[in-house]
Write a protein that binds this DNA or RNA. Structure first.
Lengths: 94, 94
DNA sequence: AAAGTATTTAGATATTTGCCTAAATATATA
DNA sequence: TATATATTTAGGCAAATATCTAAATACTTT
């Protein structure tokens, strides 16, 4: 959960997610969308991978990255849980 | 959005959220749950306030903090949006 | 108004993060 | 096998973050 929120707490990484929403891409293609160096993008991809937001698969010389949206389920549960307790609290005030 | 994810990307701050889920609390009460200093907690509360996750209201000598769950709506929308496009992508593959 | 309580602000320090360039690794191709 | 291409790893630096203690601010009570 912490890795996930940390991964999402950076604009570049959210942009990468946004790109992968449309189609899978290899590291070089992703890097081309940004003005920062490839090693930096590689590092961002690593953090996204650690947070389980993206999956990577080696295809010959390339490494293709894809989104793994299932990790967001846990996050949404967390949010709903908080909102739920809040709703109960609000109700009990009446 | 960035402030929100950054705010949530820290265990202490998520614990604070967890506490406020049950009931509103003043800064001192919150600080009592942690082994870090009051100024540090005060700083965490400030970040949560900046991210609009908590609201504060001065009650005499005390400052009471409460959760503002509406800020999560935008986040859930963001997640659903991503998952949605992913679903479409998956469908189009069939 | 003086003293006590609650909280924040200020300033210092250590750690983490984001970025870079250079070098290493792995695969593909001439 | 030598060279080119794709990506990562390593090492370093600057900015951001998390923490601390000491001091300031604001309110309450005696």
């Amino acid at each position: 959960m912490n890795l996930l929120f940390k991964a999402l707490g950076d604009p570049t990484r959210r942009q990468i997610i946004d790109l992968l929403r449309k189609r899978d891409m290899n590291a070089g293609e992703i890097a081309d969308y940004f003005s920062i160096s490839k090693p930096s993008i590689s590092h961002h991809l690593d953090l996204l991978k650690q947070a389980n937001v993206v999956l990577s698969i080696k295809e010959g010389q390339f490494i293709t990255y894809s989104l793994n949206t299932t990790v967001f389920d846990e996050m949404v549960k967390w949010v709903i849980d908080i909102s739920d307790k809040q709703t109960k609290k609000a109700k009990s005030k009446k």
